[in-house]
Nucleic acid binder design. Structure first.
Length: 598
RNA sequence: GCCUCGGUAGCUCAGUUGGAUAGAGCAACUGCCUUCUAAGCAGUAGGUCAUGGGUUCGAAUCCCGUCCGGGGUACCA
């Protein structure tokens, strides 16, 4: 039984016995003892004073005496003001670490039958431009939260809804027709998504110029934006696409194909993947049908111009457009269609949308609309809302060229990692291929950890001027700690002094750091749970950092292989090996690989 | 205007859901490689937790007001 549970029930028994008082479980507040005090677990006794009718110190002492007597694991206690610090027997932590080591999947649920199914939607790019830094945060969060849900006993289906149709892609198509010079990825060597992205910028350049011209001859901004020839032509392309014009559809397929080839490369480099991909072009009509059904059933209403709306004023919200006056669908329409298709195809218990917080209102409305349409699962949708990535200059804008391109960023990071490693000369013994693989691992580790260590809900700042760090609270720091541990274990095996798990025993005395490490290891399963219920990879990231930091301190002043006292040496090897294992599985939940050498 | 999220060290971020003297990393300065990897370790310095009130044994954390910033409120997605 876990020590916290033991103590909790011990405290409840003590209160009953001493003060004839039965508290709620949540009144028993246990926390880890602060480092400046002696002890492992601390009980806050303030809430009990009303019933004990004694001073905090006396109350704590009485409870302490009771626990010391009734729970074997409680070795001793001390009282500071209203805090009862309990010292736990080293044997308890030792046995926890030993079983952590033996447990193949310590802290991680194994796939089994009857798991609930969670579908996680993430990435969801438009097909008119390459992925940028904002997408990176989305992809890393989506991937990581999927791994964390798996670790928390969910079956997970990772999904991606590709926004492959609409005015945005028509703009790139038009630009290709008019100014594209028949360029293709093949004849230029350009990555497909980048080529299409350039065309999108090209369109915008002409469009802006036309607007300026029109304003000069007296039109308002709004009129000019509406009447510029480029946008008119793009709209014409969209109409042709919707009516199935073969030539337009062909161009659309070709250009989207280029983009997908580019995306695949970026996704692979990032190390993210999907179990099921939906395309907006295949779901928007389903959404439209649902809206029309809702209209027929009187759930929605139609204005004189033909547009369809939902009245959400009874929910404290506004009126929301669902179909334009020309009958075409909007963002919301498509999401309704996509949701319906997904729930038809899978037995989804939990649907999670990894989408930026600028869409908070959208998902609030989506849940209500699905509910109104009679889908029982509508209200249960989870919007995993995360903050924006900001640059020192403010928000990123694709059209204004202030975006940090995903491919460029990753490439740059690998370059820095390579230079740094070569300077340190650490990987000289590896083959070129192995070394190159390690550079990538480190570069991606730095990038991913950088993005995931901050609370997903908060906006974060990325400064392209300062490259992402490789020292301190970073991915490489944790990777390095893992490599160090592996190195020690390799040498132990070379010297034939590996520990045998069935023979390791607790030495007479263990140091403060050794105990701290054992306690930290024991926390891991709880951390995995917490990150699952809070949808926060950051909790895991910060735990891994603390663990690695503590290991490095331990490593610095405790000889491991050179320790003469065998029980002591073996327990140090056990602790090291277990820390290595926990780091590896923790980082895996973040989608970060750890090298054996670096 | 209305809705919503945020403001913690020079910078980037933690802070165990109300507990003890608010913590890391970066940047600056000092030490430590003949001993298991120095991408490391140890130390110095850096704070009116935006601000004013309130709630109580106890507030960075909860409530109200104010200031500053982000996002939303589109027949864009």
């Amino acid at each position: 039984m876990k020590i916290e549970k033991l103590i909790q029930s011990g405290v409840i028994a003590a209160l009953k016995r001493l003060y004839d008082f039965e508290p709620d479980d949540n009144l028993v507040q246990l926390q880890n003892t602060r480092k400046d005090f002696i002890g492992d677990i601390t009980l806050v006794v303030f809430p009990f004073l009303k019933h004990s009718k004694k001073r905090p110190e006396d109350t704590a002492t009485e409870i302490g005496k009771y626990l010391e007597k009734s729970i074997d694991e409680v070795k001793s206690f001390n009282v500071v003001k209203g805090f009862l610090n309990l010292e736990i027997d080293d044997n308890y932590w030792f046995s926890e670490v030993l079983s952590a080591w033996k447990d193949e999947s310590f802290g991680i649920a194994k796939p089994s039958e009857n798991q609930e199914l969670a579908m996680v939607e993430y990435s969801s790019p438009n097909t008119n431009k390459p992925l940028h830094l904002g997408h990176i945060r989305n992809n890393l969060l989506g991937y990581s939260i999927s791994e964390i849900l798996k670790a928390n006993n969910f079956q997970v289906v990772k999904t991606n809804i590709v926004n492959d149709r609409g005015i945005h892609i028509c703009k790139s198509m038009l630009a290709w027709q008019k100014w594209g010079n028949k360029e293709t990825p093949e004849n230029t060597g350009k990555k497909g998504d980048h080529l299409v992205g350039e065309l999108y910028v090209e369109f915008d350049k002409h469009y802006k110029a036309e607007i300026a011209e029109l304003i000069k001859i007296g039109l308002t901004q709004k009129e000019a934006e509406d009447q510029a020839p480029s946008i008119q032509e793009a709209r014409e392309l969209l109409r042709k696409w919707e009516s199935g014009d073969p030539e337009v559809v062909e161009l659309w397929k070709t250009m989207n194909g280029w983009v997908y080839e580019g995306f695949d490369i970026t996704y692979e480099k990032l190390g993210v993947d999907f179990d099921k991909i939906y395309y907006e072009s295949e779901t928007y009509l389903v959404g439209k049908e649902e809206i029309l059904r809702g209209l027929k059933e009187g759930i929605f209403y139609q204005k004189e111009d033909g547009s369809v709306w939902a009245d959400l004023t009874s929910e404290g919200l506004d009126h929301k457009l669902l179909l334009r006056s020309d009958g075409t669908s909007v963002y919301m329409t498509q999401d309704i269609g996509t949701a319906k298709m997904r729930f038809n195809e899978y037995k989804i218990d939990k649907m999670i949308y990894v989408v930026g917080n600028e869409q908070n209102y959208h998902f609030q409305v989506l849940a209500i609309l699905l509910d109104k349409l009679g889908f029982a699962w509508g209200k249960g949708l989870q919007h995993f809302s995360y903050g924006m990535v900001e640059l020192p200059s403010g928000k990123m804008k694709s059209r204004e060229g202030t975006v940090v391109d995903a491919d460029d960023l990753m490439e740059g990071m690998v370059k820095v990692a390579r230079e740094m490693a070569q300077e340190l000369g650490k990987l000289d013994s590896l083959s070129n291929e192995e070394a190159e693989k390690t550079y990538e691992m480190i570069a991606l580790g730095a990038l991913k950890y950088f993005m995931l260590k901050v609370d997903p809900k908060k906006n974060m700042l990325f400064n392209p001027e300062e490259s992402i760090d490789f020292n301190g609270n970073t991915g490489p720091f944790i990777q390095y700690t893992h490599a160090r541990i592996k190195s020690v274990l390799r040498k132990a095996s070379e010297k034939n002094i590996e520990f045998k798990e069935e023979l390791v025993t607790l030495p007479e005395e263990i140091s403060f750091k050794e105990k701290e490490l054992m306690k930290r290891i024991t926390l891991f399963p709880e951390i995995v749970k917490e990150s699952g219920t809070n949808y926060s990879p950051a909790i895991i990231a910060n735990y891994c950092f603390e663990l690695a930091k503590e290991f490095n301190q331990f490593y610095h002043d405790h000889p491991i292989l050179a320790e003469n006292n065998e029980p002591r040496r073996d327990v140090r090897l056990l602790i090291s090996a277990t820390v290595g294992k926990v780091i590896k599985s923790g980082m895996k939940l973040l989608g970060i690989e750890v090298p054996d050498r670096m």
